[in-house]
Amino acid sequence: MSAPSLADTSAQPLRHSVGWVYGVLLCVLLAWLAGILAQQSAMQKAGISVLPLAIVLGMIIGNLAPAPLRLVDAGIQFAKGRCLRLGIILFGFHLTWFELLAVGVGGLALAVTMLSMAFLVTVYVGTRYLGMERDTCILIGAGSAICGAAAVLATEPVVKGRSDQVAVAVATVVLFGTLAMFVYPALYPYLGLSEVAYGRYAGATIHEVAQVVVAGAAVGQAALHAAVIEKMLRVLLLAPFLLLLSAYLLRRPDSAAASQDAKRLVIPWFALGFVAMAGVNSLAWLPEPAVAGILKLDAFLLAMAMTALGLSTRLRDVLRAGWRPLLLAAMTALMLLGVGYVLTRWWVA
């Protein structure tokens, strides 16, 4: 075999740069399209946010594209990595410390307990009784316990999960979070909870932020306000969760994270940036239009990351996962529904 010519060698960086540009532009285009679809009244009524729409569009293009996407893979990987981490950091502008302090001990205990229980039980049952891959269980548990698709995306760099594992986790948490969005308001007349208690219950147990908003608004403004604050508290717990998970995986020699960083703790710096931005938002240094612009940028960056995830996911790999992820996610959703209600009656109502 002859050695590559000088012209071929010099052309490789150029092809990489062109592929990076076109890959990023493809993610930008699909994220923009997902944003337009998410603004349609039918999507808003259904509580379907831009993130699941972005991954669906990415999967459609990625699986049907006539040309091989490896030509633009550099840009796709950039969106999956750098755009994702920056999006998680800016996600902190959804929070203020002062609002979270109003939750009280009962609300904090409810959020921490439900997060811990949902995650640990999901991972245990999935690996022990369903024979699933641990990384898939971790991603499903994180999405169910914290904040849906955004939590799955934030957890992926820590566990070094495959694209098909992330896609399966996102699909399951979106499905059962969407069902919860309609089930909770239907059950409200029979729960014996005040609007505020119901809001705390919904915020502590429903997956996605958008789904919590719909479920709370369906009952009343007091329920909506309490639900959003409780949900934001769960979102804030994302940072310590990722730090603890990283430390745990370091001790597991069979994990991808441990094998790649065997000698040191992998600190998810973007999680610390997330907490820092929540602190900046609490100080109210920035005018409201600036914060609104940051939130729009954040939504777009996360949509780009989800699009890139969809583009790099093969549908056959998702289907190969079978019924076990659905069963596991359904079990977690039922546990959140039942145990969350009992704890709400005990600590909040």
Rank of each mutant, 00 (worst) to 15 (best):
Q44Y: 04
P287K: 09
A284H: 15
K160M: 10
L108E: 01
A290Y: 08
Y184D: 01
G177W: 02
G106W: 02
I294R: 15
I55H: 03
L283A: 15
Q165G: 03
K80P: 12
I48Y: 01
A278Y: 01
H94I: 12
S144P: 15
T307K: 09
A333V: 12
I206Y: 03
T205A: 04
T307L: 04
F78Y: 15
M132Y: 02
T155S: 08
T332C: 15
Q44N: 07
Y341F: 09
M1I: 13
R264P: 08
G104P: 01
A276N: 00
L175Q: 02
Q12T: 11
S246A: 12
F274Q: 09
L238I: 05
K45H: 15
A150S: 11
T9H: 15
I206V: 13
G293C: 09
F119H: 03
T307E: 06
V166L: 07
L315K: 11
L175C: 09
T172R: 05
W346N: 01
L242Y: 05
G58I: 02
G141F: 04
T332G: 14
A180E: 08
A34S: 13
P240Q: 02
R82A: 13
A11I: 10
A262P: 05
L90M: 04
V291P: 00
V266H: 15
G58A: 02
A276K: 00
L51E: 00
D317K: 15
M181Q: 10
Y184M: 04
L69A: 08
T122G: 05
F274H: 11
V291K: 09
E195M: 05
I48W: 00
P253F: 05
M114L: 11
L233A: 04
A79P: 09
L224P: 03
V212L: 06
I140S: 06
M59C: 00
A329T: 09
R234L: 09
I61D: 01
T155F: 02
L249Q: 10
T205R: 00
M335D: 05
L130G: 01
L236H: 05
V158H: 03
L187G: 09
F274A: 08
A197K: 00
S41D: 12
L242C: 04
M304W: 01
G62C: 05
V152I: 10
T178P: 05
I294N: 13
V105Y: 13
G148Y: 03
V342R: 09
V24C: 11
G126C: 06
L193I: 08
S41Q: 12
S255T: 12
L191T: 06
V213Q: 07
M277E: 00
L295C: 12
S2H: 14
G161C: 08
A349T: 03
A67Y: 11
I60S: 03
